[in-house]
């Protein structure tokens, strides 16, 4: 069965802040991104790179750690890769992805470093943020440009700006309409490519209610998770992505009959008189993985 890594929350930590890097792992985020791009001023780029390198090299984290590099078209992008890849981040996050060529370029560099450093081939992954209409048009190509691709994400503020509008907030009816199509198209591309879709950050830390609405909406659209910049948002995001007890119960039964069918080598699988097909099994696995991560489902096996 496909075991997909859970990425409900993807938290950024500014790469030039040692306190943030040191504690980034304690808040329970599924994935953390050390950022040497937007949150780091031009004058700090080199020191952030060194801090992130040493954090990766010498600290242990309980979760997956990615690094957001500067785009490879900037003066820092390739240097970021060259300096940081030997510290073996779990993945590279590329901002403003627009073409498959960029991804293939990065893939080549990663391959070289993996060989040179003796890392397992293919162990360093890639996540790409889509921030422009061009990137969105090429989203499927980007998502399939390398077997290292694990997720595509939408950079909401940048995308809205490139549409010459602004990112709004509000409930699922009145807010976020400017990104509605883009978000859905991103999910289509991710699903077609068989990788994950991650939503952008919600920046008003005090407005928990709108955050809940926004996470609820993107979960409905099919997103696997949401980015955030502050640990205070992690619990809220996880709560929305946590399945209900009915969902868990149903998923558990789906997997139970599926495994029974496998054991009995039976071809047709049914539950409550309904056919169970592969997508339902995969969905059930995702529901239980979410439930397990939320600490409300403890059965092993399934």
């Amino acid at each position: 069965m496909i075991k997909e890594r859970l990425r409900r929350s993807v938290m950024y930590a500014a790469g030039n802040n040692p306190g943030l890097l040191q504690n980034a792992g304690i808040y329970g985020a599924d994935s953390v991104i050390f950022d040497v791009e937007d949150s780091v001023a031009v004058t700090e780029k080199d020191s952030a790179r060194e801090l992130v390198y040493h954090a990766l090299k010498h600290l242990q984290f309980p979760c997956e750690i990615g690094v957001r590099i500067n785009h490879i078209s900037t003066p820092w992008g390739y240097d970021d890769l060259e300096y940081l890849l030997p510290a073996k981040p779990d993945y590279i996050r590329l901002p403003k992805g627009e073409s498959g060529d960029e991804i293939r370029d990065i893939d080549k560099m990663i391959t070289k470093v993996e060989e040179k450093c003796g890392f397992e081939p293919g162990s360093i992954k890639i996540m790409v943020s889509i921030e422009t209409p061009k990137g969105l048009r090429n989203a499927y190509e980007i998502a399939t440009a390398s077997p290292r691709m694990i997720a595509i994400a939408i950079g909401g503020e940048d995308f809205a700006a490139s549409l010459k509008t602004e990112k709004t907030k509000g409930n699922s009816i009145t807010g976020g309409r400017e990104l509605f199509v883009a978000r859905s198209m991103l999910v289509f591309a991710a699903r077609e490519a068989g990788i994950q879709a991650i939503d952008s950050v919600f920046s008003d830390l005090r407005d928990e209610e709108t955050l809940i609405n926004e996470v609820t909406m993107v979960k409905e659209l099919g997103f696997d998770g949401k980015s955030c910049v502050n640990p205070r948002q992690i619990d809220i995001i996880h709560r929305v992505f946590t399945p209900s007890s009915q969902e868990i119960d149903y998923a558990h039964r789906v997997l139970t009959v599926y495994q029974e069918a496998l054991a009995n080598k039976s071809g047709v699988i049914a539950l409550d008189g309904k056919m169970i097909d592969m997508p339902m099994v995969i969905r059930a696995e995702r529901v239980l993985a979410n439930a397990r991560a939320a600490g409300i489902y403890h059965k092993e096996g399934n």
Binding site: N23, I26, Y27, P231, R232, D235
Partner: peptide
């Protein structure tokens, strides 16, 4: 407090 580490400890 809004300090995430203090909030984490408090939780």
């Amino acid at each position: 407090t809004t300090n995430p580490r203090d909030l984490h400890i408090a939780k």
